[in-house]
Design a protein around this nucleic acid. Structure first.
Lengths: 309, 309
DNA sequence: AAGATTGCTGACTCCTAAGTCATGTTTAAT
DNA sequence: ATTAAACATGACTTAGGAGTCAGCAATCTT
């Protein structure tokens, strides 16, 4: 059995590794930035694998090299195999498992980081790696095992894939009371006319939420010109906490605000943008690690019920 | 990622292969009979793997070497990986998949072989390998992927494992009419007194069914001394077809007998021995091959409904 | 106790594959 | 047209692992 795999040369773990690195990085040069040797080596290793399997594993895409369908399959297969071996090694070395958790920056910082210790405990003292991703790329990353767990909006998960609901997320208008005229009622503050005169902070991460905020503002006739455009919502939150400006923030950020200092109102123009946040995982990946879906559902509850100080 | 797997030597496909061969065979010497070189090589390869993972993969058992629990896990992991690579290679080479089908000799010959072509078609022109196994070892073989499909008695399948019923199997007393006195009624022939004077053929394969037959005979007061003791039930069937002797045969063999020449009666002493034959498979293994359980259930029906000429 | 079986070890040889370097080819941007 | 980026290729050196052989040690059989 398996004679065909060994009767001719050309297959080796190192080659598989080289190919997989290229697959992860998306191209050869990105797999080994600044190392021309390694680049030529990976190029050769891929060609040797192609010769072994008798198939093209890559295709040209401009001057870059990307995976062919067969290459996609093989790279995922190899990733899984190396993963298994690594898990076995860790297990034998009595090192804890490691898991990669991905989410958008704000979700990670506000929702996930506070419960990381509890998550680690729940998963048998696993070592946890966090990675910032966009929603769209996250579901891909989970699908092919680069990320083990993701906190992601439900609509980004392909149906049939496993997930567990965590919480609903909406958007809120957050206005430091200091910036409002004395005696401004909550109802007054809900008026676009008031918004127009407030200094705003906004994200500028190119994400969907960011674009939606700007569109919504435009939709209600506000010429939205934020005073601060920040690379991340964390910075926006900070600016609000400093009472320097108002902002539209997702639910997950609200607990960080002091209600005595900041007025928080539902941001009605984005009601349709409300979304459910779910914990998403790759079924095979979790089976491999021996983590049952019961654990993961408990984990989702844990995240949902945690409260910030 | 996976740096630990490559930062030190000691891990290679060849070594994994050597280890797995030993694991399959049960000992080093059986893995390479008559080849002292290969034996010493495998011994070394195993030790190198043990050093790499920092664990014992084997333990002594008398002068033989068997797997430690960690070795068990690793060998199954490796088998799966090589299997995946082999499947991928075949797929790319546009060769059909191959599947190993196991069953007891009689079940294989009488029930399975006639439908092999149909099975192959159903599974996308797969190449099929048949292997003769005992029931007990079969369920083990399926569990760790050495055998893909097994036709096996239901009680030998661990509960929770996937299976599909094929048919009930009982045992029948088959007596060539030539051997009975003229005018012997069917009822007369059912009497142990008649059996005592008949020449019998029986299996002597050490299987459970064989032992049960002998016990049952003893139970009804027959001093069971078969005239022929054959290594396989196929030979027993042949002897009955030749009208040379009577025999106790399982349901699957009955269609090969001409009812005009051979009287077939239920063998009542073994009623409690009736069993259900099921098609059994390894869930992961079938997922790997992309074979759905719907296909397998259809396959079970196919086997059940086939009729011998 | 003698012999056979099974596995382990050391000391090699040989070969595959990893790694290095220089240079060529294709494609994209200016 | 020129330049730069990304990959490919040829011609090597080096290292690690496969393969071979001889001999030893432990265990079972008789």
């Amino acid at each position: 059995m398996f004679n065909h795999l060994f009767s001719k040369g050309g297959l080796s773990l190192e080659r598989m590794r080289g190919f997989m690195q290229m697959a992860e990085a998306g191209s050869i040069s990105r797999a080994a930035p600044g190392d021309a040797n390694r680049q030529s080596q990976i190029s050769r290793q891929i060609r040797e694998l192609e010769h072994f399997f008798g198939t093209k594993l890559t295709k040209r895409n401009g001057r870059m090299l990307t995976l062919s369908p067969a290459g996609q399959r093989l790279s995922q297969l190899i990733r899984g195999q190396l993963h298994d071996l690594e898990d076995f090694r860790k297990e034998q070395a009595e090192q804890p498992k490691s898991l990669v958790i991905g989410a958008a920056a704000s979700v990670l910082d506000w929702l996930l980081v506070p419960v990381l210790p509890a998550i680690s405990t729940l998963l048998g003292n696993a070592t946890l790696y966090t990675e910032v991703h966009r929603s769209r790329s996250l579901s891909d990353a989970v699908r092919d095992g680069r990320v083990d767990l993701a906190l992601i909006r439900k609509s980004a998960v392909a149906k049939g894939d496993p997930m567990a609901a965590v919480m609903k997320v909406g958007f809120h208008l957050c206005i430091p009371r200091r910036l409002l005229k004395r005696g401004t009622s909550q109802q007054d503050a809900s008026s676009p006319l008031v918004w127009q005169r407030l200094p705003f902070a906004a994200g500028r991460d190119g994400g969907e939420a960011d674009a939606a905020i700007r569109n919504s503002m435009k939709g209600v006739g506000v010429d939205f010109r934020p005073k601060f455009e920040c690379g991340s919502l964390l910075q926006v939150l900070k600016l609000v906490q400093l009472e320097a400006c108002a902002a539209i923030l997702p639910t997950v950020g609200i607990p960080s605000l002091d209600p005595k200092l900041v007025l928080v109102l539902p941001f009605t123009p984005m009601r349709t943008f409300d979304r459910t946040l779910v914990l998403h995982w790759n079924r095979r990946q979790m089976e491999r690690r021996g983590i049952e879906s019961g654990h993961l559902k408990r984990l989702a509850r844990l995240i949902a019920t945690q409260r910030l100080p």
